[in-house]
Design a protein around this nucleic acid. Sequence first.
DNA 1: CGAGTGATGTCAGCGACTGACATCGACCAT
DNA 2: ATGGTCGATGTCAGTCGCTGACATCACTCG
Lengths: 197, 197
Amino acid sequence: MTAAVITTIIGMGRWQPDAMGRLQRAALELYRDRGYDQTTVAEIADRAELTERTFFRYFADKREVLFGGSDLLEQRLLDALAATDPASPPLEQVAAALVTAGEVFADRATSRLRHEVISAHAELQERELMKLARLGAAIADTLRQRGVADPLATLSAEAGIAVFKVAFERWIAKAEKRSYDVLFRDSFAELKAAAMN
Amino acid sequence: MTAAVITTIIGMGRWQPDAMGRLQRAALELYRDRGYDQTTVAEIADRAELTERTFFRYFADKREVLFGGSDLLEQRLLDALAATDPASPPLEQVAAALVTAGEVFADRATSRLRHEVISAHAELQERELMKLARLGAAIADTLRQRGVADPLATLSAEAGIAVFKVAFERWIAKAEKRSYDVLFRDSFAELKAAAMN
DNA sequence: CGAGTGATGTCAGCGACTGACATCGACCAT
DNA sequence: ATGGTCGATGTCAGTCGCTGACATCACTCG
């Protein structure tokens, strides 16, 4: 392990370092430049100086290469949720956790580029929706473990995800300057206002 | 056209009638019995006494064959939304429309079967999430056309969809006897309560 | 020094999906 | 009636996503 780290740092091992990262960058560039469906996995692998077979060892399919960060987001989110006051209203717990989890986002320009690529292709949107749904399910699970009954647990999780989607879209909108947490809190306040009638 | 209808009714045309319906039924049965990924499109086509090529003329891909009703749902939903009071709070408009749109659901047993098949396969869940996302986008568009500003329009649509998902899942839960509209209204009330803190 | 390991490559194959073209009853105009 | 058009289907060949089985070979460790 130590030796592996050293060869990674020095970059003189049998293989060039960071194969996964090379694949991710190659894919993002090609998807951006030629479009998702005009790009073959073989081309991605070529650009990363690897083979198609190796691509599929790192990523389950052609879409997954764009969603490397979602495990990290989920972990951060669940940690943040665990740190909230279990006595506070569930929706407030979820909102607080979603604010905290925003720390893991890459810089705005990168997030914007990635989101543009995803928005341009239905298959990629489907995968993104799936990641968010998993996130919602994980939140709901945690709430249930904390004693929140259904349907409140599921509803709080789903509503939180809805606010998250809106806040994230606002955050990467052109010319938007406000920070993610400001936008999230604003969107959350708007949801509460909308629900009070 | 008249002749086409007659041959369809009598069923003596050059081809057996209702090719699309035969494909849908064959697919649902095979997905249920052998699982989605153990079923090939060629097998579905065979059971429907058609060819693979014809399958792909009716459905864009192997998943889409399970989602024939979603255009109808969207149409019904937008009609219902147009019929609500534009002066009422947007979230109330959305909720009212989602109650009405529930009329298009097939009987509970069929919905349950279809949902079981979908729940068993991630690829199918992705497609379902995409359909719901499109529904949400259509709702938000209509609200904006009616003068509702963003982010309120998007938030109302997304929150409505969240309630819909929860209500639908409850509706098809084992042993559930209450009607969809009762469950929707109950879930909606729960969301409002959750947001009032 | 030899055995084992792990990241990668090679190869063959299946199945989803597509474009181009063929078929052939039904329908229509003359 | 006759010929021409049309529309739903079939045939065929090909590309690409994805997988299992097996090979390679620098590196590591005993």
